[in-house]
Computed example of a mutant assay.
Amino acid sequence: MQYQNQPVPETGSIISDLAKEALATFFNTLYDNNMGMGSICIAVKDTVVYQHSVGYKFTTPTGKIPAHQYTRYRVGSISKSFTAVLIFQLYEEGLLDLNAVLSKYIPGVPNGDRIRISDLLHHRSGLHDISDTPNFRAWSIVPKTQQQVIDRIIQCTPDFEPDQMAVYSNSNYIFLGFIAERVTGLSLKQLIKERICNRGQLNSTYYGGKIAVQHNECYSYTFQEDWVVEDSTCMDIAHGAGAVVASPYDLTLFIRAVFTGKFFSQETLEYLLTEKDTFGMGIHPIGFCGKPGHGHHGALDGFASQVWYYPEEELSIAYCANGLVYPINRIMIRVLQIIFK
């Protein structure tokens, strides 16, 4: 089978052969013990220094189709980093005031006249998380209109007053995605393609739809004596909080592009990274043994993913799983232990 993708360069010796062997052993052991399936890509500057895939992307009546370096995953909440990039582009271009209130763009939201765009970015709105509403799983696998999504969020009592504290809520970034569309008149799908993928040369990244195995996309699985396929969330419900599909390689390109000026200025980047109660605005601090880093996690259905960037080393790491039992945080910590010796 031939795959039409951009070539993935893999050169350099920044990660030793011994480290590569340790990484391969680790991921192979996870798969052999039914603890995880997925793909990892590690890059320094613009050069891939390691990539590895274990498990399969989907099953057929005649067998299992293995995952590979071009496999594309639903990256869940890493989509919030994409949405934040779009919001800050609009801010830099003078099209959006981050102190503007939510009610200017989406009327009828509780406290909407006091929730600022920056509160949504920092998870300080107080809006209840739509994914923590009754029967959300069954509700989310059936297509809904944008107004139906808005109505479900509006029906929830706020968890706290705006800007009192920070509590992670998918509702914040769903609204940010809607706001980006209303400011520009373009769909989030178009915005991600034109403003992020084209500028960052992300050829295997896009706003997702129904899972398309013919486009190298994979299904997700949970382990129940064997890997069992999961139901799939409708991406128009996940929207700005979770609708992106990408390969791990593209995620390394994306996170490096954020930090190297492909999307906006250094001044705007520093604003985006501003922390409140440990939250950045779409990209959060992720340090390791005194090394400052930044990134985001993702989880959707049976998918789990993380992307991290360490500016001092110009190191990008992206891991995407479509079936996971072993905790993803422990996986990424082990990866960093091997890389940094």
Rank of each mutant, 00 (worst) to 15 (best):
179 I>E: 06
246 A>G: 07
258 V>I: 15
154 I>L: 04
253 L>P: 00
200 G>I: 08
209 G>N: 12
182 R>P: 01
237 I>L: 03
253 L>T: 00
126 G>H: 08
229 V>E: 14
154 I>E: 05
135 N>E: 13
153 I>R: 07
159 D>T: 11
127 L>I: 12
240 G>K: 06
154 I>N: 07
235 M>S: 04
149 V>W: 01
167 V>G: 00
217 E>Y: 05
156 C>A: 15
227 W>Y: 13
208 G>I: 00
171 S>C: 06
242 G>S: 02
210 K>A: 13
177 G>P: 01
165 M>D: 09
234 C>Y: 14
125 S>D: 10
187 S>P: 05
243 A>L: 04
209 G>C: 03
243 A>M: 01
151 D>T: 06
222 T>V: 06
181 E>P: 11
254 F>S: 12
188 L>P: 09
207 Y>R: 03
181 E>H: 08
181 E>A: 02
206 Y>T: 07
145 T>I: 09
255 I>S: 10
208 G>F: 00
238 A>Q: 11
235 M>F: 12
181 E>K: 06
225 E>M: 01
232 S>W: 00
230 E>N: 15
160 F>G: 04
194 E>H: 02
266 Q>L: 03
213 V>P: 07
242 G>C: 03
214 Q>W: 12
146 Q>R: 15
189 K>D: 15
171 S>A: 15
232 S>M: 10
141 I>E: 13
265 S>N: 06
229 V>A: 13
178 F>W: 07
198 N>D: 14
124 R>N: 03
164 Q>R: 13
255 I>N: 06
219 Y>P: 01
134 P>Y: 05
195 R>S: 07
158 P>N: 11
231 D>E: 12
200 G>Q: 01
213 V>C: 08
127 L>V: 08
138 A>P: 00
132 D>Y: 11
228 V>H: 04
216 N>S: 13
253 L>R: 15
142 V>S: 13
254 F>A: 10
